[in-house]
Simulated assay, not measured.
Amino acid sequence: MPAQPDTPATTSPVELSIVMPCLNEAETLEVCIRKAQGYLDRSGVLGEIVIADNGSTDGSQEIATRLGARVVPVAEKGYGSALMGGIRAARGTFVIMGDADDSYDFSDLDPFVERLRSGDDLVMGNRFRGGIEPGAMPPLHKYLGNPVLSFVGRLFFPSQIRDFHCGLRGFRRDAILRIGLITTGMEFASEVVVKSTLSGLKISEVPTTLKKDGRSRPPHLRSWHDGWRHLRFLLLYSPRWLFLYPGLIAFLVGLIGSAVLAITPIQLGQVGLNVATQVYLAALAVVGYQALLFAVLTKMYAQHEGFWIPRSARFERFAARVSLESGALLGVVLFLLGLVVGIVQFAVWAASGFGPQDVVDTVRLAVPASLLMMLGVQTIMSSMLLGVISVPVRRS
């Protein structure tokens, strides 16, 4: 579906747009709209209420229209799609978004508006500081899902946000439209925080309360499915944590360990490490090296496609020197080094008349030879893929 044109907020006197995504929320939509209207009337903020309807079939649209809210139909399914449809259609300088299930109090938005008026670009609600009513959040979400995912977000990105997934948040409309939000599902909540952080937007957090939603049906949120989508998004936007760091550790441990054991066995107390350990360490080096290659390829692909990921001056310099030809040449050199070792080993065996060999000594030399050839082939194939990724294309 073509993107809706952005309505310039500066041409409208509206200061605040309260945007609610809606998919069959007839049970709770009216109370949410009335609370939002009550806030606008009490505070004197010039605002509007936008219902981003994602295809409701329970009469939600009629309820919103009857109460004077503006209904924006959004055909593309998903939490993120509905919100972006509402944000694009909003006329306010500021936008406060919140779920239409009556779990957030739209009558108490002063902390958000105050921070936005003070110059913040994104103001996140924090349910853990403001209070979570009994039964409002499943224990799995309260004690595992939200804390773990928020911790991962702070670890992967330079963010101080303690509650990544609070559904009540406010922002400057123009700032959020600039950062290129693209996800369509529940991971939209993480994308807003991550891209705002990477873009250098001014972000703050205010306490907010969460109460049990007023619906009689189960929520749209699916714990494990949507939790994984959030985690997957965080990982994909940080290839250094997904591939680089684990791969570097595995590669160095495997490479150094197998190289040492290629020279001599190691005795650690009662434990002796020999060629069997060497084989496993070589396998670890191969897996680690593959992860390192994936880190490079993922970041190159992300840059080629215009994804927002953490940028590094060192990586930029490295990427400028990497090409299909240079990578393939390195791969050929590694492969030939391993092949030479294998040929020498074969020549020594042939000189002895192809007689019996000492298995331990043979394997001790065959492992590094095989490792070099495997690393060489991996490098060649990854360079070919890099060549495909780097092909310039015309974009409409």
Rank of each mutant, 00 (worst) to 15 (best):
T298D: 13
D120Q: 04
S190M: 08
L261R: 02
L273H: 06
P219M: 14
V260L: 11
D108F: 07
T208G: 06
R154A: 14
E76L: 09
Q345K: 04
S323T: 12
V71T: 04
Q4I: 09
G247M: 14
R222N: 12
S12V: 13
L372G: 03
R66I: 00
A175T: 07
A9S: 12
L284W: 02
R321S: 13
A320R: 14
Q357F: 03
F307W: 15
P21A: 03
T10Q: 10
R317T: 14
I343C: 06
A366E: 01
W228Q: 14
L116P: 00
V152S: 11
A351P: 01
A282E: 04
P246L: 13
G376H: 05
C22A: 08
N54R: 09
S390M: 15
F354H: 04
R395F: 11
S199M: 08
D358A: 06
R222F: 08
A90K: 02
G153K: 14
S103N: 05
R314L: 15
A9V: 12
V275T: 14
E48H: 00
P356C: 03
E76R: 05
K195I: 09
E27V: 02
W349Y: 13
S352A: 13
V344W: 01
L46S: 06
A136W: 03
A90W: 02
G38T: 07
A90Q: 00
T298P: 01
G85C: 06
G59E: 07
V363D: 01
F157I: 15
R172I: 00
R91P: 00
Y143M: 13
R229A: 13
G131Y: 07
L248I: 15
D102F: 04
A328L: 11
V123R: 00
S43M: 06
S159H: 05
G131E: 06
A259H: 03
R117K: 06
M97V: 15
I161W: 00
A26R: 11
G68H: 05
L67E: 05
K202C: 04
V275W: 12
L268E: 07
L168P: 04
G272R: 12
A282F: 06
L386T: 00
S370F: 07
P207Y: 09
R395V: 15
D110G: 02
I266H: 03
V377K: 13
V260A: 09
R162H: 11
K212R: 14
G98E: 04
L198N: 05
I161F: 05
R129S: 14
L284R: 06
V391Q: 11
S12P: 02
V360F: 07
R364A: 06
S103D: 12
M374D: 10
D101Y: 00
L292T: 14
M84P: 00
F171G: 03
A285K: 08
V152L: 15
V71C: 09
Q37C: 02
L29P: 04
F243E: 12
S326C: 09
P310K: 11
